[in-house]
Each structure stands twice: as structure tokens, then as C-alpha cells.
């Protein structure tokens, strides 16, 4: 398994996906909030976390069939293909691309994969041009988690580059973790 120790991958695999159970599951009724029974019957549709779905899907024979989450369905794909930059990614899917990579293999026609690439291409240009100029990133639609990280990294790199071009030397500063630790300590002190 790739990224076994990555916290962000663990958070991605915690997202829920709709699944159809193909076998009876005794004592597992609590997985379906609407069921009163103790047992989970074959054919029930339940939203379960991706990690559980993936692991049950890879068993022989598979215990579940994985369905596409709403945001990767035809209607949303049309919106994204039309203009991805107008979409509120924060609300739509915090981990849109990462989850999409897992989901794409359950889409037989392969349209999810093309949508992911298209969306990324459209939005990447928007993010890049905003991070090299100094106008605020908050002026456009909210970003997904990985986009936010990428933007922050781009802004830091840009600042470092222009600093280097102007000054040509790199001042010694307090180490990152030390500075952050002290900032937090100060915040805690002020709270007391």
C-alpha cells in the first residue's frame, strides 16, 4: 500500500463512499443507521468509509460493490468540465483529487479520470497566477485541502525568490519549530 504512514492519505481514506453489500453480514447492523436489525442484509446500500470499502472490495469474493460519490457523478462532472474555477472546492470535496484517484478505478468508462485531469488543469492555472502576483488568494472560490497546501508553498517560494533576487543573501533566522513553539506558548499564556 502506498503512503502507509501518511496522515493526509489516512484522512482521505476516511471519506465516505456509497457501497452496496453483496453478502449478509451478521451482527453488523450498526453500519446502516436506518436499519433496526442486528444483521446487515445483502443488497443494502450504505455509506461507509473508503478504507473499509477498499479493503472489503479487494477480498475474494468481494463483499461490497463501490458506487461513485455524488460529486463524481455525471451532473457534477458536467459542471466541472464547463468551468472548474467557479466551483467551491472546500464545500464540494476537501480531498477532491485524492479521493478521485481512488474512485476512478470503480468507474468503468474512465470519465472520472479525464474529469480529474481537466479540473486540475483549469484550476492550477488560476492558483499559479494568483500566487505569483500578490493579489489575495481569498478573492476566488475556496480551495480543497491539497490546493491550499500547494498555494501556501507557492507563495513562500515566490517570496523567497524575490527576497534572494533583491538582497542576494540569506539572513539567519530562528529555526521554524522553535519560533512556532514560542508563538504557541505565548498564545497559551495570554489565554490564562
Amino acid at each position: 500500500m502506498a503512503n502507509y504512514l501518511s496522515i493526509s492519505d489516512i484522512l482521505v481514506t476516511n471519506e465516505k463512499v456509497p457501497c452496496k453489500f453483496l453478502h449478509d453480514l451478521p451482527k453488523m447492523g450498526f453500519l446502516d443507521p436506518s436499519a433496526a436489525d442486528d444483521d446487515l442484509k445483502a443488497g443494502t446500500n450504505v455509506e461507509i468509509p473508503l478504507w473499509l470499502a477498499e479493503s472489503l472490495y479487494t477480498r475474494r469474493p468481494p463483499l461490497v460493490g463501490v458506487d461513485l460519490p455524488k460529486i463524481y457523478k455525471e451532473t457534477y462532472r458536467e459542471i466541472l468540465n464547463a468551468d472548474a474555477c467557479t466551483v467551491d472546492m472546500h464545500k464540494l470535496g476537501q480531498h477532491f483529487y485524492e479521493l478521485g484517484c481512488y474512485i476512478a478505478k470503480h468507474d468503468i468508462k474512465g470519465e472520472v479520470a479525464t474529469t480529474l485531469v481537466n479540473t486540475f488543469r483549469q484550476r492550477f492555472r488560476m492558483i499559479l497566477s494568483a500566487s505569483v502576483s500578490t493579489d489575495s488568494i481569498s478573492s476566488f472560490q475556496p480551495l480543497s485541502a491539497s490546493e491550499r497546501d500547494r498555494t501556501a508553498a507557492a507563495v513562500i517560494t515566490e517570496a523567497a525568490l524575490s527576497g534572494w533576487l533583491k538582497r542576494g543573501d540569506c539572513p539567519i533566522t530562528t529555526a521554524n519549530m522553535v519560533a512556532n513553539h514560542r508563538k504557541r506558548k505565548r498564545a497559551e499564556m495570554e489565554m490564562l
Binding site: 453478502h23 449478509d24 453480514l25 451478521p26 451482527k27 453488523m28 453500519l31 478504507w51 473499509l52 479493503s55 472489503l56 477480498r59 463483499l63
Partner: peptide, 14 residues
Amino acid sequence: NRSLWTTVQVRHSA
């Protein structure tokens, strides 16, 4: 009870 086998698998994944 053969059908318990599926439940074991779910818990094992957890």
C-alpha cells in the same frame, strides 16, 4: 455458521 465469516473480515479490516 458459515455466514459469520464475512463479519470477521469486516472487523479484521478495522
